[in-house]
Amino acid sequence: MSYHLAPAPMPPPTESALPSRDAMMRAFYARDSAAEGIFLVGVHTTGIFCRPTCGARKPKPENISFYANPSEALHAGFRPCKLCKPIDRELPPPPLVIQLREAVEADPTGRITEKELAARGIDPSTARRQFRRYYGMTFQAYARARRMGLALREVGHHGNVTEAQFAQGFESASGFREAVRRLFGAAPRDAAATRRVLFAERFTTPLGRMLALADDEGLHVLDFVDRRGLERKLITLRERLKVTVVPGSHPTLTAAASQLAEYFAGRRTTFDLPLAPTGTPFEQVAWAHLRTIGPAETQSYSQMASALGRPGASRAVGRANGMNYISIIIPCHRVIAADGKLTGYGGGLWRKQWLLDHERRLAVSAPA
């Protein structure tokens, strides 16, 4: 299963929250043009996402999900519909953008490095610039979202949707299986037979979807699925601990979902969960210190370095905070620049600002 901690994820401040599911359902089945730009529709039986006005045959209501933007849909494991082209603007995409997108769909679980782009006669900086200009994200971010989305579709479904149904939406019929194997270490069916596993769940929060991994040792990962570097962290963690990640429930994940829900609802500011972060000795010390910074409080990187007995090691502190993949609970969002500005948050500065504002509001409203 997956946990929903809020009615709908909250996108960055420049975007509006989603309407109610009933309203979006009515608009989708009516192909209401007024809904264009407000939401996108993911179809579970085909693995594609569409515009509200897509002319394809309408799926059953139980087989659709709604998303605020293409990034959400991609990270949920869907690919763009070829009929309604939900990520295209009014003007057709440049030929280079089409070429790059088709390269991803030919092997959605693979990686196309800058070196490989150059070997194809494509300047990496040009690819990055054109893709960002047209889609609002870099080419590598798009490719990473497709890889992560394919693998994470298994998390939260637990086999309720067959591999064959997943594969209907892929250019490569083995795409889903290969994505899971590369990220989690085994094919979906084989993973269950592994002796030691980390169990994975997806949580839907007001700040977007998060991935959580835990076992009897505690919570190993809790981070936003669109965070850059999360994919590499999962692979490194799997290799270092000699484990396989499988979709499944665990008491620590259940407790994490409950406590996160209370945090976002304003009923909790601290957490009582067993944690098992993997890092260097210095990173472990830094992360332990982060948990001593109270809600609605902040420290600068230099203040944190001094507290750790390493004055002048602000950069080392920043790197340690950047390697924290247990967001919110290990509150690296409470560390800011000496001048008060927000810097260096893997989940995005808009999330860091939201978390700090949320905790300050709770502090003000708390009874004396």
Rank of each mutant, 00 (worst) to 15 (best):
Leu152Gln: 02
Arg111Met: 11
Ala23Phe: 00
Ile328Tyr: 03
Val245Phe: 03
Lys352Asn: 03
Leu83Asp: 13
Gly248Met: 01
Arg21Lys: 04
Glu90Ala: 13
Gly175Val: 03
Met323Asn: 15
Cys332Thr: 11
Asp107Glu: 15
Ala193His: 10
Thr236Ser: 12
Leu273Ala: 08
Ala173Ser: 13
Glu72Gly: 12
Leu211Arg: 02
Ala23Tyr: 03
Arg319Trp: 08
Thr14Phe: 06
Ser65Ala: 14
Ser71Thr: 04
Phe139Gln: 07
Pro94Val: 06
Arg79Pro: 00
Arg351Thr: 06
Ala316His: 05
Ala320Asn: 05
Ala141Arg: 10
Asn321Pro: 00
Leu183Asn: 06
Phe199Cys: 12
Arg26Ser: 13
Leu183Thr: 09
Ala320Leu: 09
Gly47Ala: 08
Ser16His: 14
Asn63Glu: 07
Tyr134Val: 01
Leu74Lys: 14
Val246Gly: 04
Lys352Ala: 11
Ala286Trp: 07
Ala366Lys: 11
Leu100Gln: 04
Gly309Arg: 12
Glu72Trp: 15
Gly318Ile: 00
Ala151Arg: 02
Pro311Leu: 09
His157Asn: 08
Leu219Gly: 09
Gly312Asn: 12
Ser33Glu: 15
Tyr67Arg: 01
Ala255Arg: 15
Trp350Phe: 14
Ala6Thr: 13
Gln303Asp: 15
Phe170Met: 07
Tyr325Gln: 06
Leu96Met: 09
Phe166Gln: 08
His44Ile: 07
Ile235Arg: 10
Pro12Ser: 14
Phe203Ala: 05
Lys60Gln: 13
Lys352Glu: 13
Leu349Lys: 11
Ala257Tyr: 07
Ile293Tyr: 03
Arg238Asn: 11
Arg181Val: 01
Lys58Val: 12
Phe184Leu: 04
Arg310Ile: 05
Phe184Met: 07
Pro13Ala: 15
Lys242Trp: 00
Lys82Val: 15
Gly156Gln: 05
Pro9Tyr: 04
Tyr67Leu: 01
Pro367Arg: 05
Val197Met: 14
Ala27Trp: 09
Arg26Gln: 13
Arg128Tyr: 10
His157Thr: 11
Gly110Pro: 04
Gly346Leu: 14
Arg120Phe: 04
Leu349His: 09
Ile48Asp: 09
Glu231His: 08
Met210Asp: 00
Arg267His: 15
Arg111His: 11
Ala186Val: 03
Gly346Cys: 06
Gly149Trp: 01
Arg101Cys: 05
His157Ala: 09
Gly266Asn: 07
Val243Phe: 07
Thr292Met: 06
Val245Tyr: 00
Phe66Ile: 04
Asp216Ala: 15
Ala143Thr: 07
His44Asp: 15
Ser302Gly: 09
Cys54Ser: 03
Leu198Phe: 04
Trp287Gly: 05
Val97Ile: 08
Pro80Gln: 10
Asp88Met: 05
Lys60Asp: 13
Lys352His: 07
Phe166Glu: 06
Ala276Pro: 07
Glu231Val: 04
Leu355Tyr: 00
Thr252Lys: 04
Phe170Trp: 06
Ile336Gly: 05
Asp32Arg: 11
Thr14Ala: 08
Leu198Arg: 02
Pro367Val: 10
Ala167Gly: 11
Arg132Ser: 12
